[in-house]
């Protein structure tokens, strides 16, 4: 019984971390209708930014916002030079290839500049675990879960109640209509791209102390994020959180009760099943998915 409760707690905490990786993906898809295959690369960039800043002697908690800014700047430059020119209002297969190539290029650049080996990232929470009613929770994971929920709530509230957020929703529903209503579509698209990749960078910076920083660290996480986002319904923030918790639980159950070495396949199998049998996801809009 104790093992089950501990597994469920682990799963939920793990899941709220996944939500943070997934939220950026879902924002970019919701607004731009692009599946950003480079999400994992921005995740890695966030982790490496934290690493470099820490090496410069800046404390971890200050590194996080700085790293987010660094990733946002890189995202801004890429948006301006590539994404804006090639991705919007073009066919889907171009955006898949370009974002994928972008991700390869970023990962290769990280290997060339910093090196292929995993590097540890220090965090003040270290490896400590907090004991609650006899169950253990890793302090870093708790910190991630808290940040993640705060960020997700912030995004949902911002989209619902701010003028910019409403404009972004308008663009996601009908870009041409939004343009005719006087909304600055290119600028707001750039803004949502920036928000999406910054969220990826934030997630990278937060998760790095747990798994250390390595160039392809984004791959496994972005795969999970795909599962989460598809399960929750692409474009829905609430769905991303729900999906993340479900996947987190499934992963931790599978790891505890079935097999650790097969766990990487679980995420993929979940994605495949969700897409095949439930393509609109838990909270998604059905018309977005099958063409």
């Amino acid at each position: 019984m104790d093992l089950l409760v501990q597994t469920i707690i682990n799963g939920l905490i793990l899941g709220s971390g996944y939500a943070l990786v997934a939220v950026g993906l879902t924002i970019i898809f919701g607004t731009l209708h692009i599946v950003n295959f480079a999400h994992g690369a921005f995740f890695a960039l966030g982790a490496y930014a934290v690493l470099q800043l820490e090496n410069a002697g800046i404390p971890y908690l200050l590194c996080i916002p700085l790293a987010v800014i660094v990733v946002a700047i890189i995202g801004f430059v890429l948006e301006l030079t590539i994404v804006q020119r090639a991705l919007y209002d073009r066919g889907e297969h171009g955006s898949i290839i370009i974002t994928f190539a972008l991700s390869q290029a970023i990962v290769a650049a990280i290997v060339l500049v910093i090196g292929p080996d995993p590097l540890p990232v220090k965090s003040p929470f270290g490896q400590t675990a907090i004991s609650v009613f006899g169950f253990f929770i890793s302090a870093q994971r708790l910190f991630i879960a808290g940040t993640s929920i705060a960020v997700l709530m912030g995004f949902s509230l911002w989209l619902r109640y701010s003028i910019k957020g409403q404009q972004i929703l308008a663009i996601s529903q009908n870009p041409k209509g939004a343009l005719y209503s006087g909304i600055n579509v290119p600028r707001l698209r750039a803004l949502s791209f920036l928000l999406g990749v910054s969220a990826a960078g934030l997630a990278g910076g937060l998760i790095a102390p747990l798994i250390s920083a390595f160039p392809t660290m984004g791959d496994a996480n972005v795969i999970v994020a795909f599962t989460v986002v598809i399960l929750g319904g692409l474009g829905s923030i609430g769905g991303a959180l729900l999906g993340a918790l479900v996947i987190g639980l499934a992963n931790s159950m599978f790891e505890t009760y079935v097999s650790v070495s097969w766990t990487p396949a679980l995420g993929w199998i979940l994605v495949i099943f969700v897409l095949l049998f439930w393509p609109q996801g838990l909270l998604g809009r059905p018309e977005l998915n099958r063409h």
Binding site: E92, H93, I96, I223, I230, P264, A265, L276
Partner: peptide
């Protein structure tokens, strides 16, 4: 589109 690509990627991952 992207859905086919993701599932396809997923299968190769498995």
């Amino acid at each position: 589109g992207a859905y086919f690509s993701i599932v396809s990627w997923g299968l190769s991952g498995v």
